[in-house]
Design a protein around this nucleic acid. Structure first.
Lengths: 233, 233
DNA sequence: TTAAATGAGCCTATTTTATACACTAATTTG
DNA sequence: CAAATTAGTGTATAAAATAGGCTCATTTAA
């Protein structure tokens, strides 16, 4: 079979915005870029799409190569294609975002891969249009989390309700009444109360919960609506 | 400046899912593809991204070239990059969707451009993975319309509340009590009641309304939530 | 000319959901 | 053993969603 001979071919990249939660604030993972242009500057995890791989595969491969992460929540965000976005050569980039349990990988990531976590509110200057990618990802995660239970991806398997609340408050930059919060999350039927407690966060200790995975998948679409206007916050 | 010499370059296309509403059902606009492969088969409006244009520019250009449409609502949907999606040569496609007032362009489109409207429920077999693109677009439009007033883009400048209700019912494949419907849309403050009536739809005639554009832009983010679970319908 | 038919347009009662709000319980530390 | 700290719970009120019936204006057919 022949080819579309007259058309322009161009570079296609994937960039990943990796979110983590340390129990206090939302963070994203960055690395120092190790090739030109912009070598040595902070950058998202990125790489070029290879010949025989799909976009999802490329995103997963890049995540694994640069951080060792595998099997994490990964979702396509948006495709950025301004002709001038990379001064070296035109490159269109498909942005993905990932949500991970920061503690599960913390040591591994910094030790083996020279990546660093930055508070979402204190992200350094990034290369090209990556600032905009991060901003879009921030919006998307709020938007989606307002209706779907994606934020659980940021927590360990066992978590407490106060931890969950801090996460929601951190993502939406707001405060929620704890009585109303626990009422609502428990009403979703997504949580299973465990018998042991987390004694780290308080003197009394808070019960651990874990996700009811069956209900989680069943109710993923219709979750709840904590936040009035997710897009405008 | 040099280039990323070792990387693969590939073709980048844009495909547009164009939605219209004829007063009864949602439709999309298709054309017969006029080049190989799949020449003569029904296809979305598509084309290759050119050297110096952004993705949005490419989508707008393609829309204009193939349908004459300009200045319509256009939004990036998702990027499809399966290596096998185009059997001729690997092509990654950025899908966009458009919302237009079908009557405004109806004759122009079919006469000048040999495009045809198909009911969303009766879309013929499409080339490559375009069936999936349409399905994704259908989901997105529901999702978004459940919270943002995008559906007005499908109506003429002057419309009646019964027309608007039929549109919502059509998009969400449901029925809504007309008393509650009008209560809610009027409560948004987005509509301005005009003095003349549409006599075509009924004997009594229904008042025309138009959008209050100031409120429209102000409230675009926080609209309403007609439909309980937009994604699962 | 009048009755029937058609769709428009309004209003109210009820249920459901969201919000606001304050105390007691368990444990650790000084 | 007192003070400090965080966990955990219930109720009353307000707001929003839903369900439901009647009248209005006009056309068409008897």
């Amino acid at each position: 079979m022949q080819k579309y001979s007259k058309q322009t071919r161009l570079l296609l990249a994937v960039d990943c915005i990796i979110f983590g939660f340390d129990g206090e604030v939302l963070k994203i993972l960055l690395i120092k870029r190790d090739f030109q242009p912009e070598k040595g500057n902070w950058s998202l995890m990125g790489g070029f799409v290879q010949n025989e791989e799909s976009l999802d595969q490329a995103a997963n491969r890049i995540l694994k190569e640069l951080t060792g992460l595998e099997g994490v929540y990964l979702e396509q965000l948006y495709t950025f294609g301004d002709p001038q976005r990379d001064p070296m050569e035109r490159t269109v980039s498909v942005a993905y975002f990932a949500l991970i349990d920061i503690h599960k990988y913390e040591t591994q990531i910094s030790a083996d891969y020279h990546a660093e976590w930055f508070q979402l509110k204190r992200v350094p200057k990034l290369i090209f249009d990556q600032q905009e990618m991060v901003e879009q990802a921030r919006k998307r995660i709020r938007y989606k989390a307002a209706m779907h239970p994606i934020l659980f991806e940021l927590l360990p398997t066992k978590f407490t309700i106060p931890q969950l609340q801090i996460l929601y408050e951190s993502v939406f930059n707001t405060t929620i009444d704890k009585r109303n919060f626990s009422k609502r999350v428990l009403a979703t039927g997504l949580l299973i109360k465990l018998t042991d407690k987390d004694k780290a966060g308080s003197k009394r200790g808070a019960y651990y919960y874990q996700l009811n995975m069956q209900n989680y998948y069943a109710k993923f679409q219709a979750f709840m609506n904590f936040i009035p206007n997710p897009d405008t916050l």
